[in-house]
Simulated scan of single mutants.
Amino acid sequence: IIDYIKEEFLKKNLLLLSNEYANEKSKLAFKCKNGHYGEIAWNYFQQGGGCQQCYRKSRFREGNPRWNKNKTDTQRINDRKYREYLQWRKKVLQRDDYTCQKCWLKKKKYLTAHHIYNYMEHKDIRLEVDNGLTLCDSCHEHFHNTYGYTNNNYMQLFMYLNKEGG
């Protein structure tokens, strides 16, 4: 069976380094065509898994089926669809333990990393984690309905967070 698995890995440009197969959930070591080393379970590999490092690099680049070649880098930044922004968002949510800092909702699906000093007007600090705060979608919308989308600042956020009932 290990020879069959090696052939399957080669089809995805992965060199299988493991010489033994224990079961479908045990990790198999490999090296990809770009020189990355990794491990993957056979069942995950069969579901389409591969080199995680290559996947992360290609997620928002050419070669991704969702890549829009007609967009400029400026449009990507304005749309907030680039690697550094997504990393910033993740760091803010992690720091706040995936919890809305207004109503204390704890559902990852409904959370937003809110910019204290708004994104478009403060390019120099837009990716600083200290310029972000986790709000649920409802509280985030309520904040912007109250204070607008421009000239946002720390004092507005402080007042919003400390205001009773909304």
Rank of each mutant, 00 (worst) to 15 (best):
I1Q: 13
Y4P: 00
I5R: 00
E7P: 03
E7C: 10
F9G: 00
K12M: 02
L15S: 12
L16H: 02
L17W: 01
N19A: 03
K25F: 08
K25H: 11
S26I: 02
S26T: 12
L28K: 07
C32P: 00
C32T: 06
N34I: 01
G35M: 02
G35T: 02
H36R: 05
G38C: 11
W42I: 01
W42L: 00
Y44Q: 09
G48H: 04
G50L: 14
Q53I: 09
R56H: 08
R56L: 15
R59T: 03
R59N: 09
F60A: 11
R61V: 03
N64M: 02
N64Q: 06
N64R: 07
P65F: 13
R66C: 06
K69L: 08
N70C: 07
K71N: 14
D73N: 13
R80T: 04
Y82V: 01
R83Q: 15
Y85G: 03
L86T: 06
L86Q: 11
W88Y: 12
K91P: 01
K91E: 10
K91C: 06
K91F: 10
C103L: 13
K107G: 09
K108H: 14
Y110M: 15
T112M: 10
T112L: 08
H114I: 03
H114E: 01
H114T: 00
H115L: 07
Y117V: 05
Y117M: 10
M120D: 15
H122C: 07
H122I: 09
K123A: 12
I125A: 09
L127I: 02
E128L: 12
V129F: 06
N131F: 02
N131I: 04
L133V: 12
L135A: 13
C136E: 03
S138C: 14
C139K: 03
N145V: 04
G148E: 05
Y149C: 07
N151H: 15
N152G: 10
Y154L: 12
M155W: 13
M155C: 07
Q156N: 13
Q156Y: 01
L157Y: 10
L157E: 04
F158R: 08
L161I: 14
N162L: 13
G165W: 02
